[in-house]
Amino acid sequence: MTAPLERGADTILALEDIHLSYGELHVLRGVSLTVRRGEVVVLIGPSGGGKSSLLRTVNVLQPITRGRILLEGEEISAGGVDEDTIRQRVGMVFQQYHLFPHLTVLKNLTLAPRRVFREPAAEAEVRARELLARVGLSEKAGHYPDQLSGGQQQRVAIARALMMKPSVMLFDEVTSALDPELVGEVLGVMKDLAKSGMTMLVVTHEMGFARDVGDKVVLMAEGVVVEEGPPSQVLVDPKSERTRQFLARTQHA
């Protein structure tokens, strides 16, 4: 299932034959994937299939065992790269938000750009307030994370990642911890982000989002890419039996 590798200027992220093992456990078994500028690639598949592990390798939170990862043409999987600089270019949003509990919403947003880019506080705050307006949380700037609902916290987490002006945003099951009625507000923010042209790699169980927002849907299972293509094909008329099985199960759920 290895897609031909494009290394044009519009390729933001190229994964080549990624392998990852935790001891005996072979989590990723040769995954190749390309994400182009402005593209929304949605990773679906059963739990334990390696989707979240793949995201962590892209943000160099998890070193890979074999293969290559290219971010905007530059290899980031080799030894000796500056992990911090790479992470500044790859935004990540987690399932459990992971906001800094001791800082206000505004400070959650401004901390990293101030520390990493030495951005002046006033400038960072202006940008933070713009982003908070964009995710519909202007009035929450002075609140602490624990005073917010899960959906609000997750929107803050998205804004916090955007503060670093990343080249690509990774979303790791960001609605899975939310009450059903809060899922919509987070997906709405992600849709707007996709419309604004942000490059996104999204792990989700939300088939509606995959269908409506995804440019490409990738089904991963047992550490390999089973099938990939436009949502109209993968979700509606899948070629692989494994994909059909997975979709049948999610529709019954």
Binding site: D84, L99, L111, A112, V116, A161
Partner: peptide
């Protein structure tokens, strides 16, 4: 919380 900070590139 530490992971979140590192993921931001801190």
């Amino acid at each position: 919380e530490i992971l979140a900070a590192r993921a931001l590139g801190m």
